[in-house]
């Protein structure tokens, strides 16, 4: 398939992503409900299928309450600043061979750099709200995101080494024979490290200390309501979905799967949803850990471990001689 025109492609991808993200919330709610021996959303549409749409409409109709004491420009801008990087990460992901917005030769670098930028919007929201809970949450966010971006990057670099390319479509193509998750030892360990640091970098439970509703009520988004709240939610889920796609691409062979070639994007989506459910499973089974424990886990365990893993992957590549499988 040829590259789509630069104007149409982002439009389609953006809308597809928003659609997927909206329905991912339903998937998560249904999955969590099953874990907790509940049924989950069931009333709106058959099996609650229209629930995300109802939620979106509800949030749009809500009054947008702006507290008087907020720093208005920062407060109003924060959701957008938060949303943009979370949407941009989809720009470099190829959904099938040649089907994507931009197949940069440093695709993965772009992904990692942009996804680290979300912290700016997050801190703006926490600071601009002029609320003590939000401020504490923003401080925690900076701590945590910086700590976990490093192991996140290191674990994502293992497939890069194995494939010998920073271009995401090359990494995907390199797994035609053997998915990197099945690569002996290094692949599995890197996948586990990737999942853990993804959960943490996305601020999801058990690492959701910046949301921490039992301590900080709702953290940085405590003062947001209506559409601004919806945008923050959308951005968070977009980030999770983006990271799930990245995980499926780096470790699970992206669009590789049985059946004709046009099924490729379907397989890719399915694998991304598998990664998403893995993350969700973790989320709904652990209690939240404390801020100092989170930092200790990152700096004392995860960072050295991923560094060793990266070196091990490098040794494997050198020993094997040629990059690429």
């Amino acid at each position: 398939m040829e590259w789509l025109t630069p104007l149409v492609a982002p439009f389609i991808v953006l809308n597809a992503i928003i659609g997927i993200v909206t329905y991912v919330t339903l998937l998560e709610r249904k999955f969590a409900a099953r874990m907790q021996s509940r049924v989950g959303p069931y009333r709106v549409g058959p099996h609650g299928l229209l629930q995300p749409i109802a939620d979106a409409i509800k949030l749009m109709m809500k009054e947008d309450v702006v507290p008087t004491a907020v720093d208005r420009p920062v407060y109003n801008l924060a959701p957008i600043v938060f949303l943009v990087p979370c949407m941009l990460i989809f720009a470099t992901i190829p959904f099938a061979p040649g089907l994507g917005v931009a197949d940069l030769n440093i695709g993965i670098l772009f992904f990692l750099a942009v996804s680290a930028m979300e912290i700016v919007g997050l801190f703006m929201a926490g600071w601009g709200s002029n609320n003590k809970y939000a401020l504490l949450s923003a401080m925690r966010a900076v701590n945590q995101v910086i700590s976990y971006d490093l192991p996140f990057i290191f674990s994502a670099l293992v497939p890069v080494l194995l494939a010998g390319s920073l271009r995401l479509s090359d990494i995907a193509a390199a797994q035609a024979g053997l998915w990197f998750v099945f690569y002996p030892v290094v692949g599995q360990l890197a996948f586990i490290a990737f999942i853990v640091s993804t959960v943490a970098a996305e601020n999801r439970a058990p690492f959701d200390i910046l949301e921490a509703e039992s301590e900080l009520v709702a953290g940085f988004r405590v003062e947001y309501s209506g559409m601004k709240f919806a945008i923050i939610q959308l951005a968070e889920y977009a980030h999770v979905v983006g990271a799930s796609f990245l995980g499926a691409l780096l470790f699970l062979g992206a669009w590789a799967g049985p059946g004709p070639e046009w099924l490729g994007p379907g397989w890719f989506l399915l694998k991304a949803m598998f990664v998403f459910l893995l993350v969700t499973w973790v989320r709904w089974s652990f209690v939240r850990i404390r801020v100092d424990q989170i930092l200790a886990l990152s700096w004392k365990v995860l960072l050295p471990a991923t560094l060793v893993l990266l070196i091990a992957a490098a040794i494997v590549v050198v020993w094997r001689g040629t990059p690429g499988v």
Binding site: A32, M35, Q36, S37, R38, A205, P206, D208, E211, A212, E213, S214, R283, W284, S285, F286, V287, R288
Partner: peptide
């Protein structure tokens, strides 16, 4: 629920 959050593992134990 206090330790695990209403949107996390705590809610699972709570509902059980």
């Amino acid at each position: 629920l206090d330790m695990g959050g209403a949107l996390g593992g705590g809610a699972t134990i709570f509902l059980y």
